[in-house]
Design a protein around this nucleic acid. Structure first.
Length: 928
RNA sequence: AGAACCGUAGCUCAGUUGGUUAGAGCGCUGCCUUGACAUGGCAGAGGUCGGCGGUUCGAAUCCGCCCGGUUCUACCA
């Protein structure tokens, strides 16, 4: 074995071996455990959020697989309608063409080409993370089976009247020329203006003042609304104003929607361009005047002078023209929420178009109940509130998109504009007796989330009642980010309940966002993105800077990004390996919190990998080709105290890790493993094994016992840590397992650690006696080391120490472990002093009431020892004072539970007697 | 405007149902190339648990108010 752990030399080889051997596929035995990957964009690449999420999922899946569950981690990708279409359109633009020039069919060919070209990137990266997904079942939302499920769901919902088509006001993206759902709109606060206009009354008797942030829409006004009870305007209701520029008379109407205390109390109503106005317009039966083309230029419904103008140019002109007419009362600065498309970034317009909708009310009800009654549980629980508040105020879901890339809507129109919905054109013709009348299919495609809403069951073969569906549905856990609870989780719950009668999953584990070291969101435009692969493989500084500044939307940022990157990573990024990356994510994964990325952590866990590696080296050096006492008949084995202790401690660690994983506490689980491996096994047990293995005074049976324990505990540790760190554990396990009597088979389940049983703690192997004995030994050793450290006695200098005031048990413990203590504390001799013996001048420490004396002669400075003792005494004095005042309080003694009071008394006694001993010692030294 | 979450060591974070001497990692200080590991060992320093009040024998933990931060939702034209 190399002296240091080299992840790159083993990781990919192991992954390929596992995949080839089919270890990721369900075993077909045991209770099922299923998880669905949130399908990433097929042409995308892996970012830190994916890496975090995949680590959590893989840890869960490996854990359950090792527990003997029939485990399926379903993998697949999403066609990501808008995002993918945008990328391909950008590529076409670079070639000097566009999709309209190509036509729909050739454009789609181009998209499939792009998918073929870049579609493997993210799945390869998923492999680098060690993700044990079942590749044999990989799905794509646009493949035949899933497309079939999409059509089936659409048709069935339509038959029930839950999908309908209608002309509605929707969120329109003027850059992408498509409707988007309200979720895809981001409201951002921006600086704008509030313009106040005068609308003259038609009879010439005066004017009303209306205010707006979007002056261009006034050309489409069809009313002015006032509050019905507003005394200022009550008498005007029913009259008309002359709409300037458009020269139309529009009514003054009364509606509760108007807040009489805001502005002038008069509101212009533009039903075709504002959601509130749309509702008002419906109530009052107002005409809807659509002013815009699909690019948000003014159309022919606008007065001649404005036609063809971009909306923002039109705004300017409207303001100028009204000002010219003396109708601009004032302009104020105003901050407002501007709706922008989350993909395009342009201002979204409410726009009147024909769209398809899902009526969600009846679907939402059971979806709410499933969470209320606990069939689905969110982790952490507070996300349930977010879910409820959204589900209880649901808008119908606009599912049509004016794109080409996606599932085409299975609806056909005849020449009269009648619409027929069916699984395909033949079915439509048959069912509606259409003969050979010309039909044309709806041009639009479905929202990408429509297909991903079916993910848990469409991937398992629905609408066929497949074995997989029976076995793996409902799935157990969904691991996802909070940002798509509405987009995806809620819609999955609704659709899955509707079509399978089952919940899609029992638990939703919601993880936080991975942010950079400053807590900023990682984004290409900020230039603070970390690529998980760069953390695994390492990257030099220049390449990293080049990567971060390539293809920036705002090239002027290049310099700043380069500078910041060079400052943060002066030496580039080291290769830490997948296991260290995974362990870092897990240790930072406390419930639902965002993660601030910390390079220090990954470095620490890379060191942890190295620690495990070297512990294994030590074990192998001392056990290979040696008798490890595995043959129970022929070789007798004697276990040392340390052997019994570490086995006992292992049971506790196993319990902790298991309980934490069962509760999705990956931070707690990984910490428990870390703590046991480093601070117990490596720091203490390996050291305690050395005297036995290297000492002549130990019998062969004792040496065998220690060898056996070394190997067996290590083997268990590897299985315990495997879900967190799959690669290093496999690599070492292959070498260690044979020594523990588990020689890996050439193939099948026994060929790999990933199919071995997860360690189960055994109460019978707990040994409280051994644990408290070891605690005592550790305490004594620590006292000596402490004195050594504080007094700056070189670690190499062997010491003579004296023990004083010990009880029988102390004497027994020392007698039994003399050798261990000498070795670990580097002692020459340990001598008991009787009560009447006079001790040499010494530095003193306590374990309970037992004094440990390190003679000062030539080693210890009197003043230094006085200072050290003084600090100790001061600490104890404070504790004593605290305890005394507590116990002096009759309320405490009377009201607190007896055991709490008793414990407090005991503590006080201990502290008092320790204080007395140290003070006594202090006196001695002072008068030296 | 409403809601949620957060505020604990220099930094990043744990801290279950109130009963600790408040923990970990990184960083820092000192001593050490001791035959697994300097990606290491040993020891150490470092906290008024955001502030103020309240409940309680007892509060980092429960309640109220305030301050600071993050996010979501809804917005008035």
């Amino acid at each position: 074995m190399d002296k240091t752990y080299q992840p790159d030399s083993i990781e990919q080889a192991w992954y390929q071996a596992w995949e080839k051997a089919g270890h990721f596929r369900p075993s077909g035995e045991g209770e099922s455990f299923a998880m669905m990957i949130p399908p990433p964009n097929v042409t995308g690449s892996l970012h830190m959020g994916h890496a975090f999420q995949d680590t959590i999922m893989d840890t869960l899946v490996r854990y359950r697989r090792m527990q003997g569950r029939n485990t399926l981690w379903q993998v697949g990708t999403d066609h990501a309608g808008i995002a993918t279409q945008m990328v391909v359109e950008r590529r076409l633009a670079a070639e000097g063409t566009d999709r309209h020039e190509l036509g729909r069919e050739r454009f789609l060919e181009k998209v499939w080409e792009w998918k073929a070209e870049s579609g493997g990137t993210i799945t390869q990266q998923l492999r680098r993370m060690g993700s044990s997904v079942d590749w044999s079942r990989e799905r794509f939302t646009m493949d035949d089976g899933l497309s079939n499920a999409v059509r089936e769901v659409f048709v069935r919902l339509h038959r029930e009247g839950l999908i309908y088509r209608g002309k509605r006001l929707v969120n329109w993206d003027p850059a992408l020329h498509t409707a988007i759902s309200d979720l895809e709109v981001e409201n951002r606060e921006e600086q704008g203006h509030m313009w106040h206009f005068r609308y003259p009354l038609s009879d010439g008797s005066g004017h009303l003042v209306v205010a707006t942030t979007r002056p261009e829409t006034m050309l489409g006004d069809t009313a002015v609304a006032v509050h019905p009870e507003d005394p200022r305007y009550k008498d005007l209701i029913g009259q008309t104003v002359r709409l300037p520029l458009a020269d139309r008379d529009i009514p003054i109407i009364a509606d509760d929607y108007v807040d009489p205390d805001f502005g002038s109390g008069c509101v212009k109503i533009t039903p075709a361009h504002d959601f509130n106005d749309y509702e008002v317009g419906k109530r009052h039966d107002l005409p809807q005047i659509n002013l815009f083309t699909i690019e948000a230029r003014l159309n022919d419904n606008a007065p001649q002078a404005y036609r063809g103008l971009d909306r923002f140019d039109a705004r300017k002109k409207v303001v100028d023209d009204l000002d010219g007419l003396g109708l601009l009362e004032k302009v104020e600065d105003h901050t407002l929420q501007v709706p922008r498309g989350d993909r395009s970034g342009v201002v979204i317009e409410p726009y009147l178009t024909d769209q398809w909708f899902v009526a969600v009310e009846s679907l939402a009800k059971p979806a709410i109940e499933a969470v209320e009654n606990g069939d689905i549980q969110f982790v952490p629980k507070n996300y349930e509130n977010m879910y409820f508040s959204w589900m209880r105020d649901l808008q119908d879901w606009c599912i049509s998109r004016q794109l080409w890339w996606g599932h085409r809507i299975p609806a056909w129109y005849d020449e009269d504009g009648n619409v027929y919905v069916g699984r395909d054109e033949d079915e439509v013709r048959r069912e509606h007796n259409l003969g050979d009348r010309p039909l044309s299919q709806d041009e639009d495609v479905l929202d990408t989330w429509f297909s991903s809403a079916l993910w848990t069951f469409s991937t398992l073969g629905w609408p066929e009642q497949t074995d997989e569906l029976k076995t793996f549905h409902p799935t157990d856990v969904l691991v996802t980010g909070f940002d798509i609870i509405f987009f995806w989780v809620a819609r999955m719950i609704m659709m899955t309940l509707k079509f399978t009668g089952e919940v899609p999953f029992k638990h939703v584990y919601v993880h936080g966002l991975v942010r950079d070291a400053e807590g900023q969101k990682m984004s290409k435009s900020k230039g603070n993105v970390l690529d998980p692969l760069d953390l695994i493989d390492g990257i030099d500084l220049d390449t990293l800077v080049e990567k971060r500044t390539r293809g920036l939307m705002q090239p002027q940022k290049e310099k700043q990004i380069g500078k910041r990157t060079r400052k943060e990573f002066p030496d580039g990024i080291n290769a830490y390996g997948t296991d260290a990356l995974r362990f870092t994510f897990l240790s930072l994964a406390s419930t639902g919190r965002d993660i601030k990325w910390d390079m220090g952590r990954i470095e620490g866990y890379r060191n942890f990998c190295n620690k495990i590696w070297n512990a294994a080296r030590y074990v192998l050096m001392n056990t290979e080709n040696q008798d490890c006492g595995l043959d129970a008949d022929s070789s007798e084995v004697t276990l040392s105290l340390a052997d019994r202790w570490i086995v006992s401690a292992l049971q506790r660690a196993e319990t902790e890790v298991t309980e934490a994983l069962d509760q999705f506490r990956f931070d707690v689980a990984s910490h428990a493993a870390y703590e046991f491996i480093w601070n117990e096994y490596c720091d203490w047990y390996l050291e305690l094994s050395k005297p036995v293995l290297y000492g002549d005074e130990y019998s062969e049976a004792e040496k065998r016992g220690t060898r056996r324990t070394l190997v067996r505990v290590l083997e268990a540790i590897l299985r315990l840590a495997h879900p967190f760190m799959p690669f290093i554990t496999e690599e070492i396990w292959q070498k260690v397992a044979p020594l523990a009597g588990k020689t890996p088979a050439a193939e099948g389940a026994d060929a790999t650690i990933m199919r071995q049983p997860f360690p189960v703690s055994d109460r019978a192997r707990l040994d409280p006696q051994a644990e408290s004995d070891i605690e005592w030994i550790k305490a004594v050793i620590t006292v000596v080391r402490n004195i050594r450290g504080e007094m700056r006695i070189p670690p190499g200098k062997a010491l003579d120490v004296y023990l004083h005031n010990g009880k029988d048990i102390d004497r027994e413990r020392l007698a039994a472990n003399h050798n261990f203590m000498c070795r670990l504390a580097k002692l020459e001799r340990i001598t008991w002093l009787n009560a009447e013996d006079s001790a040499p001048a010494s530095a003193t420490g306590l374990v309970g009431d037992m004094e440990i004396l390190v003679p000062m002669a030539g080693l210890i400075d009197k003043d230094a020892e006085i200072e050290r003792l003084g600090k100790e005494i001061e600490k104890l004095r404070k504790e004593v004072a605290r305890g005394e005042s507590k116990l002096r309080n009759p309320n405490f003694v009377d009201k607190a539970p007896d055991e709490v009071v008793a414990k407090e008394r005991e503590k006080l006694d201990d502290h008092r007697s320790q204080q007395a001993r140290l003070e006594e010692q202090m006196e001695k030294i002072k008068y030296l």
